[in-house]
């Protein structure tokens, strides 16, 4: 990649960040503030229920890493948040340059439509996920601070190990990175498909996407007289695969809670998690998905190249 292409890409990424700061900066910030304040309020008023577990304080083996546990517990929430936000980002962003009649301004710059659409894809696949991961860490720190404040009045909390364990955190972060990356790559064809629809249909992209799924499955069901046709199975796998894999490789997750003191490192270890997750992925389906995504992105850029009006 030449320096000028890199410089242009960075400039366009900055533009995407500014344009979509509400979804990826303000909304998570407001979300974290609301959750943290609600938690603090709840603990201050109803924290006495935690007194029941006070005996844990006397048993040092039962202590666990509160910071990393909080972070781990929030990962699935952040993953879902990220996938939903990115779905809507892709639905809107491929056509967002047409807003305010500004399309011809963007076309007056020495950047190809393919580069612009590719940069939007990079923003959705790399930049915004990094932003959301950063927010997830900030959320864990905010929760940790909230626990510290609460510990003034509630002994059980102070009995827990409040000092963050750096190796555990790095381990967890690496596992989260693997989970997020492979999940995003798995969903790339769906994101680019809704992006292509957005390029053509603008605000109707999401309803059109849902309609295509429903009509596709419906037509297939009519043709086969069953709900188990190829398209329906393909879509079901595409939508659920990462979560099915997670539920299969993390059988002990349901037992991890502050009371039984199950060590987080036993549940999520990058050494175990990464190969288990990667080996459970349908890599042929993954690569075919990338090919489909490439085709969708190219068609979207060619459609954009031929548009001159908002």
């Amino acid at each position: 990649m030449s320096i000028s292409i890199l410089k242009t890409t960075i400039a366009l990424l900055k533009k995407e960040l500014i344009e979509h700061k509400v979804a990826f900066i303000y909304v998570p910030a407001i979300f974290i503030i609301i959750i943290t304040l609600t938690f603090l309020f709840g603990m201050m008023n109803n924290g006495n229920v935690w007194q029941r577990g006070a005996f844990v304080a006397s048993n040092s083996d039962a202590r666990f890493d509160l910071f990393n546990f909080t972070y781990a517990a929030s990962v699935m929430g952040w993953l879902l948040f990220m996938l939903i936000m990115l779905f809507f980002y892709f639905a809107a962003s491929f056509s967002s340059d047409r807003k305010d009649n500004a399309l011809l301004f963007w076309k007056s710059l020495p950047v190809s439509d393919l580069q612009i659409i590719s940069t939007k894809t990079i923003a959705g696949m790399i930049m915004f996920p990094i932003v959301i991961m950063a927010w997830s860490i900030i959320a864990a720190i905010a929760t940790y601070i909230a626990f510290l404040l609460v510990s003034i009045n509630i002994p059980i909390v102070s009995a827990l190990n409040l000092a963050p364990s750096v190796p555990t955190f790095l381990n967890l972060l690496a596992s989260m990175l693997v989970l997020f990356t492979l999940t995003l790559l798995w969903y790339l064809p769906l994101f680019s498909a809704v992006g292509l629809l957005g390029t053509i249909l603008r605000g109707w992209a999401v309803p059109a996407f849902i309609l295509i799924m429903l009509v596709g499955s419906g037509v297939e069901a009519l043709a086969t007289f069953s709900g188990e046709g190829y398209f329906a199975a393909l879509m079901e796998q595409r939508f659920k695969a990462p979560f099915i894999i997670l539920s299969e490789i993390l059988p002990n997750m349901e037992h991890a809670n502050p009371i039984n003191g199950l060590k987080l490192t036993e549940i999520i270890s990058i050494k175990n998690f990464a190969p288990n997750f990667a080996s459970s992925i349908d890599w042929v389906g993954m690569i075919l998905g990338w090919v489909a995504a490439g085709i969708f992105i190219f068609i979207a850029s060619e459609y954009r190249r031929r548009r001159i009006q908002a």
């Binding site: 533009k15 500014i18 500004a102 011809l104 963007w106 007056s108 710059l109 908002a310």
Partner: peptide, 17 residues
């Protein structure tokens, strides 16, 4: 477009910046 500049009658600027 490296050596060409233009303003179109219908063009506007991105308002969010």
């Amino acid at each position: 477009m490296l050596d060409t500049a233009f303003i179109s009658d219908v063009a506007s600027l991105p308002r969010f910046l």
